[in-house]
Simulated scan of single mutants.
Amino acid sequence: MLKKSILITSVIVFSIITAVVGSSIYTLYSKKVVSVDPKLKEVSGIEFDKHKRLWAINDSGDEPKLYRLNDDGSIAKEVLVTNAKNIDWEDMTQNKFGHFFLGDFGNNKNDRKWLTIYKIENPIDIKTNTTEAEIIKFTYPELDGSPIQPDQRNYDLEAFVAFGRHLYLFTKNRTEPFDGITNVYKVGDHAANFDAQLIDSFKTCTTMEKLCWITSAALSPDRKKLALLDSTSIWLFENFKGDKFFSGDVFKIDLGIVTQKEAITFYDDNTIAFTDEEFKGIGGNVYFIKLDQVTKVKVQRSHPQPQ
């Protein structure tokens, strides 16, 4: 009798787990639009140009190139940034004029002193397969050359947006123990050397760092919504004042199963696109969500003082 009870319990538990996993898989893949060309297996940033065509960049290891995609995910055009290097390209954003910014600021070991952002012309104006960038350099004034302690390793970056005449950088937290805080830094949007100004912080979660890392950011075209991406969710900020992005309402949108989600952007004020990297046959896709058709869970704002 005991063995039979254990067997029944095991079947019930297995069925519940299967249903939960199945639901999570459906949550993600029901939003899939297209798979991207295998050459873009490590997409780290995406943007739509003014003609609503999707552009993408690869993570480190690729040439300093942008790729424009066809509707079927194949590559329509490649543009080489002739005066750039791809040390660790991690995100792409644009300002209201359509200039693209490419963030070469990945800093996994928290040991890069100077980080780089490349600013290029509006891609719809690039007539050839090459372009040249303005070069924006920045450093963290808090760093004095001393070894960074494990609980202070919050100088990696994979996310930024353009707002007004500035760029806002959201850190990828690598603290030990992990405290879940993303810091926001501010630099200018033009060629110069900047000390990044720490202006705000937001705590995502502290359960597992790989589930809470911020890997990309985007502002809606009307500049009224900010989206931050992690491996399972979109953090959506609305009703904020000026550049105080965390001063308004905060919502969380479940994206289903864990994949390496690395890039996010807005197609329009109600539509978000995001991508994940391909890993062992999983991922490598573009997904779309409509904000008026998904469940947005309002969360209690965790708004710590900048660390």
Rank of each mutant, 00 (worst) to 15 (best):
M1H: 11
I6G: 00
I8T: 13
V11D: 05
I12P: 04
I17H: 07
S24D: 14
Y26W: 14
Y26D: 12
V33P: 00
S35N: 13
L40M: 06
V43H: 06
V43G: 00
G45E: 02
F48K: 13
F48I: 11
D49C: 07
K50C: 02
R53N: 15
W55P: 04
W55D: 01
I57T: 10
G61Y: 00
E63W: 08
K65F: 10
L69P: 07
D71G: 11
D71C: 00
G73D: 10
K77F: 09
K77N: 02
K77T: 02
E78P: 01
T82Q: 14
N86R: 10
D88W: 08
E90F: 06
N95V: 02
K96T: 15
G98Q: 08
H99K: 12
L102E: 03
D104M: 08
D104S: 05
G106M: 02
G106N: 05
N107S: 10
N107R: 09
D111Q: 13
D111M: 13
R112N: 09
T116G: 01
T116N: 12
K119D: 04
E121A: 15
E121L: 13
P123T: 12
I126M: 09
I126E: 11
I126S: 03
T128C: 05
T131H: 10
E132I: 13
E134N: 14
E134F: 10
I135D: 08
I135T: 15
I136Y: 01
I136F: 09
P141Q: 03
E142G: 00
E142W: 06
D144Q: 11
G145T: 02
S146C: 03
P147V: 01
P150K: 06
D151S: 14
R153V: 03
Y155R: 06
Y155C: 01
D156N: 02
L157P: 00
A162W: 09
F163I: 01
H166S: 15
L167H: 04
L169M: 15
T175Q: 09
P177M: 07
T182V: 10
N183A: 03
Y185P: 02
H190D: 12
H190I: 12
H190S: 14
A192R: 13
F194Q: 05
F194C: 06
D195Q: 11
L198F: 03
I199S: 04
S201C: 07
K203R: 15
T206V: 13
T207D: 14
M208C: 00
M208E: 15
C212L: 04
C212V: 02
T215I: 08
T215A: 05
A218V: 07
A218D: 08
L219G: 05
S220I: 07
P221S: 06
R223N: 12
K225S: 13
L226R: 11
L226T: 04
S231D: 01
S233E: 13
L236F: 13
G242D: 14
D243A: 13
K244R: 14
F245K: 04
G248D: 11
I253Y: 01
D254M: 07
L255C: 05
L255I: 07
G256I: 01
T265D: 09
Y267S: 06
F274M: 03
E278T: 15
G281Y: 05
I282V: 15
G283P: 10
N285W: 05
V286Q: 06
Y287Q: 04
Y287S: 01
I289S: 06
I289G: 00
Q293Y: 09
T295R: 13
T295Y: 10
H303M: 14
Q307D: 11
Q307Y: 12
